[in-house]
Nucleic acid binder design. Structure first.
Lengths: 327, 327
DNA sequence: TTGAAAGCGTTACCAT
DNA sequence: ATGGTAACGCTTTCAA
């Protein structure tokens, strides 16, 4: 790496002082047009580029937020990221996107780095709060889609009980009685979506006995539905942990010769744009993903400026049923 | 924004000097265990977080690369981004992702900011080189999927002539003679893909008269194929500018009662993972998108360190035909 | 219009 | 083991 060209080099080349160079480069006025041009020429000549660190040190106004997501290739996270980027841009903030490659180890490493690179962090984390705290060493953080127990963190809550209830209501209204679920296989503890579904089924007095686990991928959904239907061939509808799995389920149904929605109704969760691309278009309990990202940024901003935080009820994003073609 | 806690505050609280604080926080050794603990406690107590600017200023080793893409929601760019992130992480570099919202104005604004935030930039730009240069003011830049004319820039070239030729060969081998193309409508000048297709058709002595323009979206593809088939109902196959448009075409074919691939063969371009999700799975002239991102990062790194640049022939990514179900 | 001096918060180097 | 001093590169007073 060749030695860095500094403002002093430019000053010397142009035969002026540093401060004059600074003025010329920042359009400060109070400078002779000729001098300015001379400085600009010298700067270009030398390939001078101001150090962002030195600049940041002096003017403390650059806010950078870290956005941590498990997988850039998962459209759900991309949609959330898009919302966050948009909200951040509106405030003139920067966003550094970190992809933890869905691995806990990578997450640890990432957090270590994140902590020294940004002013606040928002996103999806899998570490527990205690460990998160040690890696983050005081960095303001907003957890998405996950409750926080310690006041140390803030979080955006996904509320889907009503939406899932809507979905089951819809299925029941269509005459379905045997409704299964494709849950997420990767998580040890029972998750909210599973519970929401159980509640909704109970409300209709229906048996909630046909539940399979799916890996978080299209292929995972395909495999999971195939084996679920083997065990429970009488199912006429299935609710899935998310749209990715649902899309895999769509494919499995097709391969098994079941027409969707006539022979099997499928309802996903998330309401991804991707769901409009497949055929039949996916009926889904939809989240406003952009809003999720925007809220996280908003709250991070408040954390950063010690402004009053958003109240809990505003930190919640409600899912609603979006009926398309698959159910 | 409350006043910043500096290393001096911690030093004072712990009753030691700045340097000692620095040692304690950076695990430097040469420090008494008790002192270290005292410093750590004080730091935690005060909520001290080192300034990344001051740090960056003194240790000149943090490399940050800007990745500019038109649209985070477009899976093609996401795949490239994933490749870039991975390559950057392997080198211990940071990547800031910028989304230009597919707008030239946003691109201008973004570049202005980018220039003062990163050490180098890679990505997709729509501005011409002259304007790019003024906004970037000397920042090393790697343009993806686009030739550069001035030595000022470097670029990653997408070479699809052979792949498209393969695709047309394949279609012809299957008996197709009337093959149309859904080109990208947004670009004024004839683009490479259009030319590659024309050449491939010419090589077979086939008429290249059925070409429509599509907006860059699934809906765009649907509309475009619909109108193309209205004009040229005799088409039995169609090649599209990219997979997104191809997926829209798939949907249009279905709506028009044409079975794919029997009544109409469809070949996309890009080879997105998304193409395996739709039904029938998309046959496509595929690019190694991860490699595109990785190459861009590699070249940016060389630009940055004044290492010998990658030679032109290595800066090229070749597309190859991937046969799935749609053709 | 221009320049000199004083920081911004941190780490490296050299004493002690 | 600890502290003093000098950078790092830039912008912001304040004088001239």
């Amino acid at each position: 790496m060749s030695k860095r060209v500094t403002i002093n080099d430019v000053a010397q080349a142009a035969g002026v002082s540093r401060q004059t160079v600074s003025r010329a480069l920042n359009d400060k006025g109070e400078i002779d047009a000729g001098t300015k041009q001379r400085v600009l020429d010298a700067a270009r000549e030398l390939g001078y580029r101001p150090s962002r660190f030195a600049r940041g040190l002096v003017r403390q106004d650059t806010t950078t937020i870290g956005l941590v997501i498990p997988d850039l290739l998962n459209p759900f996270f991309t949609e959330v990221a898009a919302g966050a980027l948009e909200a951040a841009r509106a405030r003139g903030w920067h966003v550094i996107v970190y992809d933890t490659a869905d691995s806990v180890d990578t997450e640890r490493g990432t957090l270590e780095v994140v902590a020294s690179q940004v002013d606040a962090v928002v996103g999806y984390f899998s570490l527990d709060e205690a460990e998160l705290d040690t890696h983050l060493s005081g960095l303001p953080a907003v957890l998405i889609g996950r409750e926080h127990r310690t006041p140390r963190f803030s979080s955006i809550r996904i509320e889907g009980a009503a939406g899932v209830r809507e979905a089951v209501d819809h299925l029941v209204a269509k005459g379905h009685r045997r409704i299964g679920m494709l849950d997420y296989a990767g998580r040890a503890k029972p998750n909210s979506r599973r519970a929401w579904f159980a509640d909704a089924m109970a409300a209709h007095g229906l048996a909630d006995d046909a539940v399979g686990g799916a890996v978080q991928s299209v292929d995972g959904g395909t495999e999971a539905l195939t084996s679920l239907l083997t065990k429970h061939p009488d199912l006429t509808a299935v609710f899935t942990f998310n749209d990715i799995i649902a899309i895999g389920a769509l494919r499995a149904a097709r391969r098994l010769g079941r027409t969707v929605p006539d022979d099997l109704a499928v309802v996903g969760f998330d309401g991804l744009q991707l769901g409009t691309v497949v055929d039949p278009a996916l009926t889904s309990v939809a989240l406003d993903t952009r809003r999720v990202g925007a809220l996280a940024i908003e709250q991070a901003g408040r954390l950063l400026t010690d402004s009053p935080l958003l109240p809990d009820e505003e930190l919640q994003v409600n899912a609603v049923l979006v009926i398309r073609e698959s159910a």
